[in-house]
Write a protein that binds this DNA or RNA. Sequence first.
DNA 1: CCTGGCACTCATCAGGGCCGAGTGCCAGAC
DNA 2: GTCTGGCACTCGGCCCTGATGAGTGCCAGG
Lengths: 338, 338
Amino acid sequence: MLSERRLEVLRAIVQDYVGTEEPVGSKALTQRHQLGVSPATVRNDMAALEDEGFIAQPHTSAGRIPTDKGYRLFVDKLAGVKPLSSPERRAIQNFLDGAVDLDDVVGRTVRLLAQLTRQVAVVQYPSLTRSTVRHVELLSLAPARLMLVLITDTGRVEQRMVDCPAPFGETSLADLRARLNSRVVGRRFTDVPQLVQDLPESFEQEDRGTVSTVLSVLLETLVEETEERLMIGGTANLTRFGHDFPLTIRPVLEALEEQVVLLKLLGEAKDSGMTVRIGHENAHEGLTSTSVVAVGYGSGDEAVAKLGVVGPTRMDYPGTMGAVRAVARYVGQILAES
Amino acid sequence: MLSERRLEVLRAIVQDYVGTEEPVGSKALTQRHQLGVSPATVRNDMAALEDEGFIAQPHTSAGRIPTDKGYRLFVDKLAGVKPLSSPERRAIQNFLDGAVDLDDVVGRTVRLLAQLTRQVAVVQYPSLTRSTVRHVELLSLAPARLMLVLITDTGRVEQRMVDCPAPFGETSLADLRARLNSRVVGRRFTDVPQLVQDLPESFEQEDRGTVSTVLSVLLETLVEETEERLMIGGTANLTRFGHDFPLTIRPVLEALEEQVVLLKLLGEAKDSGMTVRIGHENAHEGLTSTSVVAVGYGSGDEAVAKLGVVGPTRMDYPGTMGAVRAVARYVGQILAES
DNA sequence: CCTGGCACTCATCAGGGCCGAGTGCCAGAC
DNA sequence: GTCTGGCACTCGGCCCTGATGAGTGCCAGG
């Protein structure tokens, strides 16, 4: 195992490199950190760290930079999560408190995260699968045409058209609306199918077709919309990526445009606790030179969706993790209140 | 006024520069276009064009590139709108036809535009101000808490919470719902305020407070949501911008993140017909080296929102304009059908 | 009014030499 | 055993230089 001091050297290298964006040499290290040893000793330690694969040199006779493995060790063992300052906390709360609806909450969250971390922020809309039904509404638009509106406890609204096989009277409609709501309100989406299974049977023969149709549209909505939506922001921060630009930024922007990729990315994050994926740990090819910090958030104790940031592997991990965690908490609170 | 041939020379310069991204010289011009004159003559024409401010040289003894003014003349006088090929048209239609709801329509449109033009696409959600009410729904969530849902003819849904000053019975609720809808369904948003003005008076004394509250929330929603939303895509195409990258792309990405800026940008476009803003014609500072091609689209003959693309001033104007126009038409059709 | 010719400008590129940060290794000190 | 100072070595980055060539402006003649 690596000695205490060698870990300290690694920590110093990571910190300096994150700050300067330039390979860090042994002399500079001893000057900027109180390691209590000479550059020569540090060089020996560096050689050892390089043998183990934690750092590398871009070219002979340049300083060292951390490898993905080095960042991993740093994140796992050497770095804590840096809590935000209380002015920052207040700013977050103030900013999020002004939101008027769900879109607004998500939008503000994205901007906030992007600003705080100076990186690209990704926020997933609260998922339908894990949330519960607040209300189901049925509106008659034409004799044989209904609109189904589904409202979730996270404030999300989905609407669908329903073409009925037969005209459906206002009284039947009110009846269906009432029965449907009494069964599903407050229930989780995953439970809905069983709960409404036998509903058609309790209706007159002539209405059963329509009731079945309505139900199938409802169930479809629940499943279909498991395909989540998300919002991203702060892409301008990518321009601070590095010097070798175009080649670096291109694949990242492309990856960010693919909702599927991002959803998979967030999906891979653990439900609770924070997940940090560094460089090549990310499956997607365009993101092998980026790190992703993600965390779940929710209105209660359970996560209903995830949010996170995407940035260069050379990022301020403690600070980023702190910001991500704090934002997730506040968003959770906001959702719980509304 | 410029002679016929000089205009021809300008056209040739624009076309070549758009193709090669490199300053174009007199010799190359005569080789690639049948101008029927020698390089020396072209040089004289170029000198004249430069005097008039239509072209410029990046440095002495380099070829010429068009100025903003040159592009303007090109767009106004020299270029038509290039119609899409019929396979392209079919592809558009197929791609848009698969959309399931409004979000999906807008999302697909953005991706389509970005792909077709290989530039950044911006699509505004159909505006509430110009559209009409399809339905207003009121749901009772708690004795003194209602949810108001507004559905527009463009398929958009907005919901708001209403805290009532007094409990509100189910029958009163049904009554209000019915009367409200009979007055506003099919009407334009701008007409709604007058139409509901005297509604509270027709209710019992005890319910008037609640009715007024509901109405004020409704009106607020109409106004508030004039603040439009929009979706952008294709930002990865910015990487094909130029060679001098970071400095060019940075302000553009920043501008694109500001919804306000984009909305203003689209807002400045004419309601009907296509608007092309070139380089410094764009008010926003970050966009002075980009051109914006925008057009209104709508479900009927009237525009309900706008869409367009943002690209380098050095863009294929005829092709871009053709794509933008075609996409706007098809989206209009889709909206009209649903 | 067009054309060919000519002198001139200047960005780009490859080559060469210098500089200095940083390394690895080794012999000696604690 | 571990740390330290010293030293030779490597190699990317920088600057200067000269050659190259595309492109121009101008002018005299058709």
